[in-house]
Amino acid sequence: MRRFVPLIVTLLLAGCSLFANTPQPAPAPTAQAQEITRAQTGGLTRLGSISVQERGSPDDAQRAIEAKANEAGANYYVVQLVSETVIPGVWYATAVLYATANGGAQP
């Protein structure tokens, strides 16, 4: 049993590296809010969270998130969840909004 402890620890540590993200820069801001990954949020200012509930498809929920992010004046957003509710055909989505350090979109 003592022989397997180092092996198990090594495998667990190796597995943790699968969840580590290397920080990456966000793309240049545009007039429209852009979806980014969590690894691209470094150096950005968090504006808050939004949620939507849309009838249709997951794409409809994603479009509603993008529209709401544009209304809020965000440069970027990270989708956290897109899930069908208990009502078939109704989708719920949440996202976190971010802005550049200067806080505004640059065309």
Rank of each mutant, 00 (worst) to 15 (best):
R63N: 10
Q40I: 06
S83I: 07
V79S: 06
V79L: 09
P29C: 00
E54W: 00
F19H: 10
V52L: 02
G15Q: 06
I36D: 00
Q34C: 00
P88M: 07
Q40C: 08
E54T: 10
A26T: 06
Q32C: 11
E84P: 02
R46A: 13
E54F: 01
A33M: 13
E35R: 15
A33F: 14
T22G: 06
Q53I: 11
V86R: 13
L12P: 14
L44Y: 01
F19S: 12
A74H: 08
T37V: 14
L18G: 11
L13Q: 09
S57G: 04
T85L: 02
R55Y: 04
D59Y: 08
S49A: 15
A33W: 12
L47P: 12
L44W: 00
L11F: 07
L81R: 09
P25K: 05
Q34S: 03
N75I: 02
A69Q: 07
L12E: 03
P23Q: 04
L44K: 07
L11T: 05
G73N: 00
I50V: 15
A14L: 15
A26N: 08
P25G: 01
G42P: 00
F19T: 09
P23E: 03
V79N: 07
V86F: 05
A31S: 14
L47I: 13
I65P: 02
A72R: 12
E84G: 00
P23T: 04
L13M: 13
I65G: 02
G56N: 02
V78A: 07
A33L: 10
L12I: 13
Q62R: 10
G15H: 06
A69S: 09
V86L: 11
N21L: 13
V52A: 04
S51V: 02
T22N: 12
C16D: 06
Q62F: 11
R63T: 06
L11K: 04
A33T: 14
K68D: 04
G73C: 01
N70R: 05
P88E: 11
T10K: 06
P29N: 01
I87R: 11
E35F: 07
T10H: 05
A69K: 07
T41H: 04
I65F: 12
P88D: 14
E35W: 03
A61Q: 03
T85W: 02
Q62V: 13
N70Q: 10
S57P: 10
C16R: 09
V52N: 05
D60V: 01
P29S: 02
L13F: 06
G48C: 09
S17A: 11
R38E: 15
P23I: 03
I87Q: 13
A28S: 10
A39G: 12
A67R: 11
Q34T: 06
I8F: 15
Q62S: 10
R38V: 15
A72K: 14
N70A: 08
N75D: 09
T37I: 07
A72P: 09
T45H: 12
A67M: 06
L13A: 14
P23V: 03
G48Q: 15
T10F: 11
E84V: 01
G48E: 14
R55P: 12
R55L: 11
P88S: 05
Q32H: 15
E71F: 02
T10N: 07
T85D: 00
